[in-house]
Computed example of a mutant assay.
Amino acid sequence: MLDETQEKLCDENTTDFSDLKALILNCTLKPTPQGSHTDKLLGIVETILHRNKVNAERVRVADFDLAPGVYPDMTEHGWDRDDWPKLWEKVDAADILILATPIWLGEKSSICQRVIERLYGHSGQTNDKGQYIFYGKVGGCMVTGNEDGIKHVGMGVLYSLQHIGYTIPPQADAGWIGEAGPGPSFGDEREDGPPHGMDNDFTRRNTTFATWNMLHFARMLKDAGGIPAHGNSTELWSEGRRFDAPNPDYR
């Protein structure tokens, strides 16, 4: 799965990442066991994580029944079934969250959008410092398709993650698109040579950079005990702390 350069980077790594947990949510529209081009790209990411002893899990979101809504458990708001609480346990435990999605009509998949909405349902929760619950966690995304839109999709996903509190490292997105129009997708076999996209240096480089940057930022945040709470604690703000901010003059 990894090329020579990627293997060498893993072999030469001296940082201990073994206490980190990563959750990869594949937001393909295809349930298991249907093939997923997004899954094939994620194989590179997951291999790098595992080679560095990260506790990484890849989940196909289409295998779950996620009710629409922006509350932690939508069975409390009129829906008969909601599998999100099962996924939330994994999200809550992860130091790194990677959202992966195909491109449809220039946008992230409907499943990816629903995941973001369900994440938003927890945005009012706080950690033990009084910060929003996603502070101290790292986010990133992977994108596949055969039309233009990687940067557009990455922009939307990464903005959403940082808005609710995730830390986004540099170049925390990567993807592959083939020629515009109908054609092969990432990982499709061809008569001669490696599967489509596997030999694309640009995609391999960006996927590698994104994965390592997420690892490095997760390591730094965990070692630092998260993000300092001065100036960003909702609990302290509610108690009247203003962190030296001047009071507005209403005169």
Rank of each mutant, 00 (worst) to 15 (best):
P246L: 14
R190T: 12
F217Y: 14
G197H: 08
F209P: 02
R242T: 13
H216I: 09
I227P: 01
A245K: 15
P246S: 14
L221N: 03
N206C: 07
E235A: 14
R204D: 02
A229K: 12
I227Y: 04
N200G: 04
P246Y: 12
E235K: 14
N200V: 01
A210Y: 02
R190Y: 08
Y250D: 03
F243S: 03
W237V: 06
H216R: 13
A218T: 01
E191V: 13
R204H: 09
P195Y: 00
L215I: 00
N232H: 08
L215M: 03
G240N: 12
L215S: 01
S233R: 10
H196M: 00
R205C: 03
D199V: 02
G226D: 03
D249M: 10
A229S: 15
R219F: 06
H230N: 15
R242A: 00
R241W: 13
M214C: 13
R242C: 00
E191P: 08
G231M: 04
G193N: 06
P228I: 09
L236E: 11
P246T: 10
N232T: 08
P248Y: 09
T203D: 00
K222N: 05
T203L: 02
P194H: 07
D192K: 14
P246K: 13
E189S: 11
F243M: 05
T208R: 01
H230A: 15
A218D: 00
T203P: 07
F217Q: 09
G197V: 04
P228G: 11
Y250K: 08
A245E: 15
E235V: 15
M214S: 06
W212R: 06
F202N: 07
E235R: 14
P248D: 06
D201I: 10
T211I: 07
